[in-house]
Design a protein around this nucleic acid. Structure first.
Lengths: 199, 199
DNA sequence: ACTTGATGCAAGTGACTACTTGCACACGCT
DNA sequence: AGCGTGTGCAAGTAGTCACTTGCATCAAGT
């Protein structure tokens, strides 16, 4: 029996359920995910799912918590001192932002769509971006103090992240131009630094 | 009887149903929307709803089609010659973009979430932005020819719209900074034109 | 006056959903 | 060896959902 996973550790079962939850949730949205389908995909009995998480709501919350990695950007920021120029640092940041968003694209989209329907999901999904935001604001603050950038650090961070947020979330709209990612990042960073005005 | 609207024209009934559909979809998401609730909000019998649209899926498609206004941006672009400076033109464009996106924020979110589930919804909702995109690319092309801007017109358009797309769609993330909209637009336009680099 | 068609209303159908229950099995720990 | 616990399995419950049906009513067109 493939489905019989007795003997697997409790944590393994749990994380298999959470992974399945994420997949189904991304496919069908919060209302569309059924505990049956999640259980099936996790190769777990539906009853086991409920024994672990009690209700579907708790399951979703647990999943969103579980896939809420807040760490990544800070590591990137720490490793940034190795890069000489400001351009280079921003490119690294941009690529990190794109990759992080892409990894959670599914969750972000669903969470945005269900903004009103499920406020708790909101909190969970936006927690990581919020932490990232704060680190970024601090980073830009330092760059302003060092007279490498000008303006308001919060707005710089907001605008900087806008570029990559849209790059990931609305790339469907721009299917005409599909430059390789590195090139795109370079273009966006250049725009961010120097603008588009001629001369 | 409030609910008895016999005598209203067929089109009126139809558009009342579509309006209700939009409201409920925005509130509950695609799976959370029930035909019962839509019918109730439209002050229409559920059977009438099905007599008009056949299935829930057709109803959604009809709603997305119905609220797909492609016109607005071109009018704005036409009225742009009255504004003297490039900055001013871009600000007007930015405000128009924000308002247009805000008006359809709910639809955009639905479409994004539905990306996988229902490809038809995609086509409907992205039709207007795609048209807008093309006009904008042309506009930026002219500005480049006139040596007011530099770069690739498609990318300029993409980056320019990124700013406002994120401004609307991710404003939840930036609840800390809530400058008045005009100020925000000014800031974004300035960034777009001159970048953030010091000196 | 008669027909036509859009609608209301009430009831219903079958499918699906979240969640439960009772029991058997199979591991790991002592 | 024995016990606890995590799991499978099958059946079930009460509710909800999309969608249908049959019939009565009302308004407009001819």
């Amino acid at each position: 029996m493939i489905a019989d996973v007795r003997g697997a550790s409790v944590e393994e079962t749990r994380s298999r359920i959470l992974a399945a939850t994420r997949e189904i949730y991304a496919l069908r949205g919060s209302r569309g995910t059924t505990t049956r389908e999640v259980a099936a995909r996790a190769h777990v009995n539906e009853a086991t799912l409920f024994r672990h998480f009690g209700t579907k709501g708790h399951l979703l919350a647990a999943m969103l918590d579980h896939y809420n990695d807040t760490s990544s950007l800070n590591e990137v920021l720490d490793g940034l001192t190795g890069h000489a120029t400001l351009e280079e640092q921003l490119r690294v940041l941009g690529i990190a932002a794109i990759e992080s968003m892409r990894r959670k694209e599914d969750l972000i989209k669903i969470a945005m769509a269900e903004e009103i329907a499920d406020p708790h999901a909101q909190v969970c999904v936006w927690r990581a971006p919020t932490a990232a935001k704060e680190s970024l604001v601090k980073y830009f603050g330092q760059k302003i103090e060092a007279r490498e950038l000008r303006g308001d650090s919060a707005w710089l961070a907001r605008i900087f992240m806008s570029l990559f947020f849209s790059y990931v979330m609305a790339r469907r709209l721009w299917s005409g131009i599909d430059a390789p990612q590195d090139e795109a990042v370079e273009m966006m960073v250049n725009m961010f630094l120097d603008g588009a005005r001629a001369n």
